[in-house]
Computed example of a mutant assay.
Amino acid sequence: MSNEGRKNKPVRFNISDEHDFALLNHAEQTNLLTGKPRNVSKYVKRLIEEDMKRPLQSKFRIDRNEPIIIEEETYSIETKEAMNSFI
């Protein structure tokens, strides 16, 4: 099969990170009906499609790669999440 007309977008999981490892294990579950591993590509596409169908709950969408600016200070999403864990 030719990959012409296809675009690969790899997803990386850090297996040393507990959360990433749990996500990977969930994504790779075996289909109980067929006994075959889940098609991760189709699974991700279905999740994206479901996300697209949801109405925007806010006019702001968070991109984990973009900084968050709060009261003239800039934080990464990871820093903001860490700060919130102490509240």
Rank of each mutant, 00 (worst) to 15 (best):
14 N>C: 05
25 N>Y: 09
40 V>E: 04
43 Y>R: 03
20 D>Q: 03
36 K>Q: 13
26 H>W: 12
25 N>T: 11
26 H>Q: 13
45 K>Y: 08
40 V>Y: 01
34 T>A: 02
35 G>K: 00
13 F>C: 03
32 L>N: 11
32 L>C: 09
42 K>Y: 11
39 N>P: 01
26 H>Y: 14
6 R>P: 02
38 R>K: 12
13 F>P: 00
45 K>G: 08
23 L>N: 07
44 V>G: 06
44 V>I: 13
23 L>A: 06
30 T>N: 06
44 V>C: 07
17 D>F: 00
6 R>T: 13
24 L>Q: 05
29 Q>F: 04
45 K>V: 06
44 V>E: 04
44 V>Y: 06
21 F>N: 13
38 R>W: 04
21 F>C: 14
44 V>F: 15
19 H>P: 02
11 V>G: 05
38 R>H: 05
28 E>H: 12
19 H>V: 14
42 K>I: 08
32 L>E: 15
4 E>L: 10
10 P>H: 02
21 F>I: 02
15 I>Q: 03
23 L>I: 10
7 K>W: 06
17 D>A: 02
4 E>S: 10
9 K>V: 07
4 E>Q: 13
8 N>R: 09
41 S>V: 09
43 Y>L: 11
21 F>Y: 15
41 S>G: 07
38 R>N: 11
19 H>E: 15
33 L>H: 12
29 Q>L: 06
27 A>C: 08
14 N>M: 02
29 Q>A: 12
31 N>H: 10
14 N>V: 00
10 P>Q: 02
